[in-house]
């Protein structure tokens, strides 16, 4: 995995054990570097901005990032399996709207969430099936379905907002669980589940193999297309959850809302060190990527920097992360 230290072949492994050697190894690990960069960033803001280092502020960061963060987690799995899913924003919109419609019809929060999640998985599987059957790159397929799903959301609602006022439903987006905003709890729970799936299940390992080299995976008997389809279904599921949280927070569902989360979510995954070409990446990396994006926004807001500059800075960081991805792959 990317976090593994590397030693050039033909040289003896550095004698293990010593504290310095450990630090050296950590410094070589991209994730450790990212974590260090994050701490540095946080330290700068802690010094520069008055109310940065408060519990409430970090809860704010969590609340501000949860929606795109949840989507980014599933996207990480899809991307590790070599499927760059760009349709998830539209899936968010569709599932959010469907949930709001269930609420508006008086079906209650549980039914609304169930419908949204089922449809999210379904749309993810549609992506997976099209990728498998048409033997196309997931990016191409999901670019198409992005337009189809997103367009359907507009056609279905006629562009009109769908109100979703239900107290139980609203708590998903605005409530607190154990003193922590519920969206953040959901994000962390999903992160834990997906991290376990990737690290401790055969399916998770197959995602890495398929993303790394689909041809080789096929030759060792892995059904690469189905692994990808399942990974895309996971991406669809998290997009649906993100859509539900988004609508529950807003209290109203609008077509086109989810699509706006696209760049942030992809940026979080890329900053987190998941290879764009697939085959490597970690959930904890994406969490760090989410934290980096959220903290930059938050810190600059506290410092009163204009949002245009924030966009520019985030763009620079994403390009930087892509360059690192490129260098890492060239080294490999």
């Amino acid at each position: 995995m990317t976090a593994e230290p590397s030693t050039p072949i033909g040289r003896p492994e550095p004698a293990g054990g010593g504290g310095l050697a450990l630090i050296g190894r950590l410094a070589a690990a991209p994730l450790a570097r990212l974590a260090a960069a994050y701490l540095l960033l946080a330290a700068v803001f802690a010094i520069a901005a008055d109310h940065f280092l408060t519990t409430d502020n970090f809860l704010n960061i969590g609340r501000a990032t949860a929606v795109f963060g949840i989507a980014a987690l599933g996207l990480t799995v899809a991307l590790i399996a070599g499927a760059l899913d760009v349709s998830f924003g539209a899936v968010m919109s569709v599932c959010g709207i469907l949930a709001a419609e269930r609420i508006a019809a008086g079906d209650g929060a549980a039914a609304a969430v169930a419908v949204a999640l089922a449809v999210g998985v379904g749309l993810g599987l549609v992506n997976g099936l099209l990728t498998a059957v048409l033997r196309l790159d997931a990016l191409i397929v999901t670019l198409g379905t992005f337009s189809i799903f997103g367009g359907w959301a507009f056609l279905h609602t006629n562009g009109a907002p769908t109100p979703a006022s239900d107290d139980a439903f609203a708590r998903i987006g605005r409530g607190e669980t154990l003193g922590i905003p519920t969206p953040v709890v959901i994000m962390i729970a999903i992160a834990l589940v997906l991290a376990v799936v990737l690290r401790w299940t055969g399916f998770g390992q197959r995602c890495y193999l398929v993303g790394d080299n689909p041809r080789a995976a096929t030759l060792v008997g892995i059904r690469a297309a189905w692994v990808r389809a399942a990974a895309l279904a996971i991406s669809g599921l998290t997009a649906a959850i993100a859509g539900v949280v988004m609508v529950a927070n807003a209290g109203v569902a609008n077509a086109g809302e989810g699509e706006r989360q696209l760049l942030n979510a992809i940026a979080a995954v890329v900053i987190g060190g998941t290879a764009l070409a697939g085959g490597s990446g970690l959930i904890v990396g994406t969490l760090l990527g989410i934290a980096v994006l959220g903290t930059i926004d938050n810190g600059l807001n506290l410092l009163g920097v204009s949002s245009t500059w924030q966009d520019v800075l985030k763009g620079v960081i994403v390009v930087f992360a892509l360059v690192l991805d490129r260098i890492r792959r060239r080294d490999a």
Binding site: A216, L219, G279
Partner: peptide
């Protein structure tokens, strides 16, 4: 292009099947 999982470790390459 067909045999290795180039981003993987030796262990993952051996264990893949």
């Amino acid at each position: 292009s067909e045999g290795l999982f180039p981003q993987g470790t030796v262990g993952r390459n051996i264990g893949a099947a």
